[in-house]
């Protein structure tokens, strides 16, 4: 069974990959370009990423949680909470390497649309982008949280590589604060 939410067209989608690991960026760019995305650019640190995002030309942000000494969640939060940021509502996929307790919750609470546990696979990346495109969530704008609604039902499971509940969507309603 495929884990896709539907077939997507990524032709000419512009992507910013915020990742300080050059090989990881090269892999992500190669896969995205094979999907049709273009341009796919890199930011090595949070400051560079913020600068590129402010230009308003990015359709999708893929950010590594560990960028700049684990500043990925902080970057996402800054984008979501800045009401003047033209890219405030762009889809954001957070990538995670080795994780510890609370990491996925941090990504969710920062305002990420989805998380993806590394290593990357073409199928895993395609599935998550498909879910982001086909299942848009209401954007919540509160004083203490801005981002895709954290309270929603997971209506199916993207497949991909290993299946871990924390890997693809935030569906842990029980521990969530009211977001609406």
């Amino acid at each position: 069974m495929s884990g896709t939410a539907g077939e997507i067209n990524l032709k000419n989608i512009s992507v910013l990959v915020a990742d300080s690991c050059e090989p990881a960026f090269r892999i992500t760019r190669s896969i995205l370009k094979s999907f049709g995305a273009d341009p796919v650019v890199n930011a090595q640190d949070v400051a560079q990423a913020s600068k590129i995002i402010q230009r308003g030309m990015v359709d999708l942000l893929i950010v590594n949680f560990d960028i700049d000494g684990k500043q990925g969640a902080k970057l996402v939060k800054a984008i979501r909470s800045d009401r003047r940021n033209p890219a405030r509502h762009i889809p954001i996929l957070m990538t995670l390497g080795h994780t510890s307790i609370g990491t996925v919750t941090k990504c969710r609470d920062a305002g990420s649309n989805m998380v993806l546990t590394l290593p990357l696979s073409p199928g895993g990346l395609y599935d998550r982008l498909s879910w982001i495109a086909m299942h848009p969530r209401p954007f919540v704008d509160q004083d203490d949280f801005a981002g895709p609604c954290r309270r929603f039902r997971n209506t199916g499971a993207p497949g991909g590589m290993e299946r871990r509940s924390s890997e693809f969507e935030f569906n842990d309603d029980d521990e969530m604060d009211a977001a609406e």
Binding site: I8, N9, H89, A133, M134, P136, V140
Partner: peptide
């Protein structure tokens, strides 16, 4: 407030032909 905000990504990704 909570509302669906259309993005260029979601609009373009739904265009045909898809991959």
């Amino acid at each position: 407030t909570a509302r669906i905000v259309p993005t260029r990504f979601s609009q373009m990704a739904k265009q045909k032909p898809a991959m």
